[in-house]
Amino acid sequence: MTMSKDLIAASATPLILSILSHGDGYGYDIIQKVHTLSDGEMQWADGMLYPILHRLEKKELVESYWGTAESGRKRKYYRLRQSGLKELKAQQKNWHNLHTWLQQLEGGAVCSN
């Protein structure tokens, strides 16, 4: 089952922040982790990740630094900041609430006035 573009876009930030909360990462590595995690269901266009990362950096939720890959190429790594961790917690809470509400509705817990 493929996910809608809107859902992919909405979930991108919490997913990126969550991945970075486990350790520093770079673009390709983040994409691979999302691919593995979703078993290929989450289809991101690779190039779309970078504008999101740059926006997160602009908002000071993540910070970046340059390193060197095993191949010798220059590589940009991203690290989660404290404000990013705070944002992640808030987003996790929102998604958790949404999940709970959907489950309640699925179980027939609809209030009828």
């Binding site: 673009g27 390709y28 970078y50 740059h54 191949s71 590589r75 940009k76």
Partner: peptide, 16 residues
């Protein structure tokens, strides 16, 4: 330029 370098690194990773 640094964004260009970042994009190149990604493209090389996928090519590899």
């Amino acid at each position: 330029n640094e964004r260009l370098e970042e994009l190149k690194d990604h493209l090389y990773c996928v090519v590899e």
